[in-house]
Structures are given as structure tokens and as C-alpha cells.
Amino acid sequence: MYAVFKRELFSLLNSLMAYITIGIFLLVSGLLLWFFPDTSVLEYGYAELTGFFSLAPFLFMFLIPAVTMRSFAEERREGTYVLLATRPVTDWQIVLAKYFACLILLLFALIPTLIYYFTVSQLALPKGNIDAGAVIGSYIGLLLLGAAFTGIGIFASSITKNQVIAFAVAAFLCFIAYIGFDALSQLFSLSYFENVFQSLSVNEHYQSISRGVLDTRDLVYFISFILVFLGAARLVIGGRKW
């Protein structure tokens, strides 16, 4: 499994698309956080990163599908997946190796954003007057959200040979998971289904963790969410092997 993981990670790091995608993510998040009046921290006047953590999930809907779209789609299009499938590794090991490689790249994209925390803490009056617990909780929530979206991206890449289709399917599923269930809960407000759809919403659990409180239910939800999509990807590639 480690060999497949290393191969996939080096392949991502040698891909120009990965650097372009991460660069666009950092550029857009920086512009939204510091320059655009409606979302700027300087205009808001409070030493907090709420704006960044509210906007980042929508950027993830495009960043993560762009990173994961080539995982299986390119292997199948070029015919190299046949060679990978003949190696002494299980389907689960292949899926997990590709998943963790994409997750490491996502972590590389998030690390530079820590400068936002340092900058805002220096701008605060007095210096360092920022809710560190809420920021840490928000980063944990953002990482879990990214892990969930990565699972969706791996699944979308496993069902097609076309990277563009994999990107579109992943972006659509991420949007539905983040926004769709919230919309359905509002549609069925004041009924039993409102709580059901809210409990299924990724946004609901992300906001819960972003408050700085790690609830076991939220962790179980994200882990289950990830396993469902990785399990679906494993079934797809396993079925194709047969």
C-alpha cells in the first residue's frame, strides 16, 4: 500500500494541475479575506477568521474535485490501472492509498493559510486577542470537511474514464452534501424530516465542530460519510476487475 501511496503522491506533486489548483485556492481565499469589502477582515473590524471558514467549503467544492478527478479516471484512460490491479495489493489498499495521497495534498493547501491566523492575531487590539480555541476547532472541522469531499472525489473518479466528468460529478455531489440537505430541511420545516435532513447535512456537522466543541457524533458522522464513499469506490473498481 505504501508503494501505491508514494507513487500517487509523487504523481500529484509532479502535476502542474495540483499547483495551479492550490495557487488559485490561496489566491481567491486571500482576496476574499483581505481585499473584497463584503468579506474583508479589515472592513469587518473583528479579530476572527469566521469569513475564511465560511467561504473555504465553497472553494473546496472546486479545489478537491480538481485534485481527485485524475485518481482513477486517468489510470483507466491510459490503461495503467490494469498493471496496478495485478500488483499484490487489495482493492481497499488501492483506494486508501489514493485517498490519503489526495488528503496530504489538501493538507499542503491548508498549511499556508495559517498565516491568516498569525496576521489577524497581530492586528488585534491588544495583540494576540483572538479566540484560538475557535480557530483550532474550525481548522479541524475544515480538515474533516475536506476529508469528506475527498472521499466523494475518489468515488466520482472511479466511475468514469473522463476527468472532466469526474470533476463535474464530484463538484455536484459535494454541493448536494453541503447545501442540499440544508435546503431539504428548510423545505420540510416543522416536521420530523427537518431533523433527519439536518443530521445528514455536512454543513450542520461542520458548523458544530467550528464552534470549538468536538462532539463524538460529529466525528462518527464524518468517519461514516468517508467510509461510505470509499466503500462505494471499492465496489466500483472491484466490479470492473471481475
Rank of each mutant, 00 (worst) to 15 (best):
R77L: 02
T50Q: 10
D131K: 01
G45C: 07
G239F: 01
M69S: 08
L190S: 14
I176P: 01
F72G: 04
A170L: 08
R217N: 15
F229R: 02
T90F: 00
L55D: 13
I176H: 01
L96T: 02
G137V: 07
I179R: 13
R87D: 00
Y221I: 12
F149W: 04
N129Q: 11
C174L: 01
S189I: 04
K127F: 13
I179N: 12
Y117V: 11
D91M: 06
L42T: 11
A134R: 13
N162W: 00
G128H: 04
W34R: 09
S71F: 03
I209M: 14
R234C: 13
D131I: 05
S208I: 10
F53R: 03
F149A: 02
G212S: 12
R77P: 01
T21R: 00
V28N: 05
Q93F: 00
S189M: 08
Y99V: 00
T216G: 13
V169R: 03
L9T: 07
G79D: 01
V213W: 08
C102M: 03
V228I: 15
V213D: 14
A148C: 11
T68L: 06
A232L: 15
F181H: 07
S210Y: 02
E75Y: 06
I22E: 02
G238D: 07
I152W: 03
L219C: 12
A85L: 13
T119D: 08
L26H: 04
F53E: 04
S210N: 15
L173R: 04
Y192C: 01
I64G: 06
A66H: 03
A109G: 14
G153I: 06
A109L: 06
F181C: 10
L123T: 07
V228R: 02
T216P: 13
C102F: 01
Y2C: 00
I130A: 08
L235K: 09
S208P: 06
L144D: 09
L200G: 03
L26W: 15
A101R: 03
V164N: 09
A132I: 11
P112L: 10
L230D: 08
F229I: 01
F149G: 04
L125R: 13
P112G: 07
V82K: 11
V220Q: 12
L59I: 13
R70W: 05
A168G: 06
L63T: 13
P57S: 09
L227P: 09
L55G: 02
L184D: 10
A171P: 01
P65Y: 09
L123F: 15
I111M: 10
